[in-house]
């Protein structure tokens, strides 16, 4: 399968990328690792006229300790996130969720920024970022904006990014001594989650992100507030389907997904010591 024709633009800097986006509007798409976009282009579900390649922007490949939070450059590849010491010790759920994405070859190419900007409710990484209450930094011609991860996802494969903006950084607040769990139910090793759950429990912090339970990556406020009010794993897990709008497809019905969400959240909370 071969994508439809496009003009290829290699961006030499973030400003060049933003400028190209500004010139071509919604006819242009950024490509990073390409493991979501290139398959869509091969199926001709996406047919951008201009493809702006940001792979060479090495200054967006980093994991930094910025005091209150970890700063992760948008072009940091999954293979570098999953093994990074700062992430493993401060945001274990993100390391584990990232390790569960695709396979080693996919993780050599895919980037954290790409996984977030794609806005896929079936993706593992957004659930971890929801549970960690991360923020994303986007840059456009007017400058930078910082957006809470929950507000970033606005619809199915839709985000708050404007046509001429680019995601540059993910910020993960440190939750000292937090316990966490990543749960994923699928049938074969490299499959997408039928349902998944990211759990982070810390001092005054309860974060629960669900995979594939809504048209957007979903934060379970019902479970979170129950936890903050002292609920145990079983009581809080029972609330995991509240507010969800799970899809029905060949892998699972809506009811079955709701059941899975309750079971996985309960197991995750138990693993996280609740």
């Amino acid at each position: 399968m071969i994508p439809a024709n496009f003009d290829y633009i290699q961006a030499g800097s973030v400003d060049e990328a933003i400028q190209a986006l500004g010139e071509h509007g919604d006819e242009a798409k950024l490509v990073a690792g390409g493991h979501s976009l290139i398959p869509l282009m091969k199926f001709r579900l996406a047919t951008p006229a201009y493809l702006v390649d940001i792979n060479r922007l090495d200054d967006l490949k980093y994991v930094r300790d910025d005091g209150e939070y970890l700063a992760v450059g948008a072009l940091t590849r999954h293979c570098d996130v999953e093994k990074n010491d700062l992430i493993v010790s401060n945001a274990g759920v993100l390391a584990q969720a990232t390790h569960n994405v695709g396979d080693p070859q996919v993780r050599h190419r895919g980037t954290i920024g790409g996984a977030v900007a794609h806005g896929d409710p079936a993706s593992d990484i957004p659930s971890a970022l929801l549970a960690l209450k991360a923020t994303v930094v986007v840059r456009g011609p007017e400058g930078e904006r910082e957006i809470g991860i929950e507000d970033f996802f606005t619809g199915f494969l839709e985000t708050d990014l404007h046509d001429d903006e680019m995601l540059t950084e993910v910020r993960i607040p440190k939750v000292p001594d937090a316990k966490w769990s990543f749960q994923k139910f699928n049938r074969r090793a490299q499959d997408w989650a039928i349902v998944g759950a990211s759990i982070v429990c810390g001092d005054g912090h309860a974060g629960v992100g669900l995979v594939n339970m809504h048209s957007v990556p979903f934060r379970s406020e019902a479970v979170e507030s129950a936890l903050l009010n002292g609920a145990n794993a079983e009581e809080a897990g029972d609330l995991a389907a509240e507010g969800t709008e799970a899809p029905s497809d060949l892998n699972a019905s809506k009811d079955y997904r709701e059941h899975l969400a309750r079971v996985l959240v309960r197991r995750g909370l138990q693993e996280a010591g609740r």
């Binding site: 290829y8 290699q10 490509v31 390409g34 493991h35 290139i38 398959p39 493809l51 390649d53 792979n55 293979c79 080693p104 070859q105 996919v106 050599h108 190419r109």
Partner: peptide, 18 residues
């Protein structure tokens, strides 16, 4: 699967231009 600068990648999902 081939190696790109020494790392395994799936060459059906990478553009030659990249």
């Amino acid at each position: 699967t081939v190696h790109l600068d020494g790392e395994s990648v799936k060459s059906c999902t990478v553009l030659a231009a990249q």
